[in-house]
Design a protein around this nucleic acid. Structure first.
Lengths: 372, 372
DNA sequence: CTGTTAGCGCTTTCAT
DNA sequence: ATGAAAGCGCTAACAG
């Protein structure tokens, strides 16, 4: 919007040209709102025949107001209303709180992110705190811009699933006194709390499950390895193979998959090989969906085993049901929000990393034995 | 949080007891942030050897600043930074804009709501506007409280999927000059724009599809009829039956279902009847999931036809695939956000209702002929 | 107990 | 072209 809402400082880009002064300078006068100004403490004070400081005292339960005056003030408020003005309050208050936090996730439309968002909200709202939310799409520039936007509105804290490897903008927030908690991914080098799934051991458990069924040629389908979770899940895959004395066959590892159709294509290619894998491990929810699609199309969904990381709705109703390493996004979101509010309340001490365990859910696809 | 963030006015409840003064009065002094105060225009001005008004001019591209001074100001900003302060700016500005909107949906974790949220964000963020989001869970009191919270932070507009039938709090926002756009549901009696699916004709199309396959005993499974969308979808069901000259059999209509397991139970009960339905129409995404589960457990998923309203991930991979009347949540969110920004920009004129068409997607479950 | 004054960071208005 | 002063709505720090 206004070009100066952008960060003016330290090299972050300013107004991006075309979109400057977007909403024009004045509001159109057509169809004017019936009531223009919301009542303020001053209005209430006049109505109650007192000073606005007294109104402030009443509203803040500061005490030291006679019952009679308080009664009059409350009556005035009941008549004309007194919507709180958090911006003005935060401006003057020593703690500068806005009762607002920012939430930055990969994509609020992804079921995992959405569940995390809901859990964060459920911790925040009962505390009277409301939540900005935004999607990053793995774009570090977008993350920086949104952190700036949130900071410009004085959020009390940030919950972030960091995109990319560079976290100086988050470190700057920390330095300025805004607590940050990472979810889903640990921001390496950043002194912030983090709440993550047991990605490596969870993935290893899933792959071990396939190994136990007798598979030796297990494909790995993952997102970009620059994404920490993707890398950790691959590490778990590799660990499990190593334990079993098997090498990681690069021909069976496909990374950098960004969508269900990417996964679909990758599986289709793998199945076309001379010696195709007898099982696959998909390292993310949407990739699992894509893999299932490919297996069905090739009509091998009852012959090729599949274990997916992260659960999906309806996965149990497919035939066979999809065996998954389920995460617990509600716990991740809840714990992250709790840690954040601890820090906002002044909680000190070393940053902590909380691991939320995954659960292997056997539903059929992971129990298919190797065909050969 | 602070008890006075709650609405002080007009009977809305104040501090709810236990949660008053939540975060304590002062921030703990342990582990103090390295840098306490973010730089302001005054700091930059001192550094540049000018007045802070000049800094304001530079930052706002107001013009009327000599090139030399502007250079110095920009240099100072580059050195010490100048994070924008939207709260302070909005306080003084005539338009009072905060470049912030509020989004109130049924449940941000529901795939439909989540897709709407993402679409709204994608319209807002490129405009430099960020989004508060919250879930209502069909609770009108929660809606009122959250609208108050949003208003207390000076949102420029609201996108709401209203819970309940009473919209006075939204009317009050409208009167105070804050535009409101409804999504998913029309708020009757409220002079606000709305963007909704063609619930009645869409549902009718789905039911007609079952009738065309020869079904005469078609069950309806829906949410609470007090929810406008649920009522409209039922109306579509009834219309389609009426067109076919069939009565609505109350024994086949189950409403008030709130969860997948509710739907599961209802279908199981219906199947246990002497003359069970040969087909079912489920009026919401999660109810469809529950119904599928029940049909599978009873092993009649290939004998009893099913059409669901609203699409679900993986619905195409089930066996049979689930025939759905798909909504277009991305379009709903995008159009709602566009309408909202039009109003924020001063767009006048009568409130408009935009209908977003649904699409029947045939996948198998809806094409099963009646068994008898 | 009550009110006055100052000032948060910024834009507006008005001088210069 | 530049700056000083006022003030947005509120809380903090002092009066009385």
């Amino acid at each position: 919007m206004y070009d100066n809402v952008a960060d003016h400082g330290r090299g972050t880009r300013r107004c991006d040209g075309a979109r400057c002064d977007l909403w024009g300078v004045v509001m159109s006068a057509q169809d004017p709102p019936i009531e223009v100004r919301r009542p303020t403490m001053r209005d209430v004070a006049i109505r109650a025949g007192t000073s606005f400081k007294t109104v402030s005292r009443v509203v803040n339960d500061e005490g030291g107001v006679s019952v009679e005056l308080e009664r009059r003030v409350r009556a005035a408020i009941a008549e004309i209303g007194l919507p709180p003005h958090v911006g003005a309050r935060s401006l003057r208050r020593t703690d500068r709180r806005t009762a607002t936090i920012g939430l930055l996730l990969e994509d609020v439309a992804n079921p995992f992110s959405a569940a995390v968002a809901r859990a964060v909200e459920d911790v925040a709202v009962p505390r009277g705190v409301i939540v900005y939310s935004a999607s990053l799409d793995e774009d570090p520039a977008r993350e920086r811009a949104l952190v700036t936007q949130f900071a410009a509105r004085g959020v009390d804290g940030l919950v972030v699933a960091p995109a990319g490897a560079e976290h100086e903008h988050l470190a700057a927030e920390l330095r300025a006194g805004t607590p940050v908690v990472c979810v889903d991914r640990i921001a390496t080098g950043l002194a912030a709390d983090a709440v993550v799934s047991t990605n490596d051991t969870g993935a290893a458990e899933g792959v071990r499950h396939l190994l136990a069924a007798g598979h030796r040629r297990i494909a790995f389908l993952g997102d970009r390895p620059t994404i920490a979770t993707a890398a950790q899940r691959f590490a778990g895959y590799a660990d499990a193979l190593r334990e079993a004395g098997l090498p990681v066959d690069p021909a069976l590892v496909v990374e950098g998959l960004r969508s269900p159709s990417d996964a679909d294509g990758a599986v289709t290619t793998l199945l076309g090989r001379r010696d195709p894998p007898t099982a696959a491990f998909t390292a993310q929810n949407l990739l699992t969906a894509g893999a299932v699609r490919a297996l069905r199309r090739a009509r091998v969904h009852r012959r090729v085993a599949l274990v997916g990381f992260d659960d999906i709705l309806l996965a149990d109703l497919l035939d066979p049901g999809i065996t998954v390493v389920a995460q617990d996004p509600e716990a991740i979101g809840r714990i992250a929000a709790e840690l954040l509010f601890d820090r906002i309340a002044g909680g000190a001490g070393e940053p902590q990393v909380r691991f939320v365990p995954t659960t292997l859910i056997r539903r059929g696809s992971g129990e298919i034995p190797p065909a050969d």
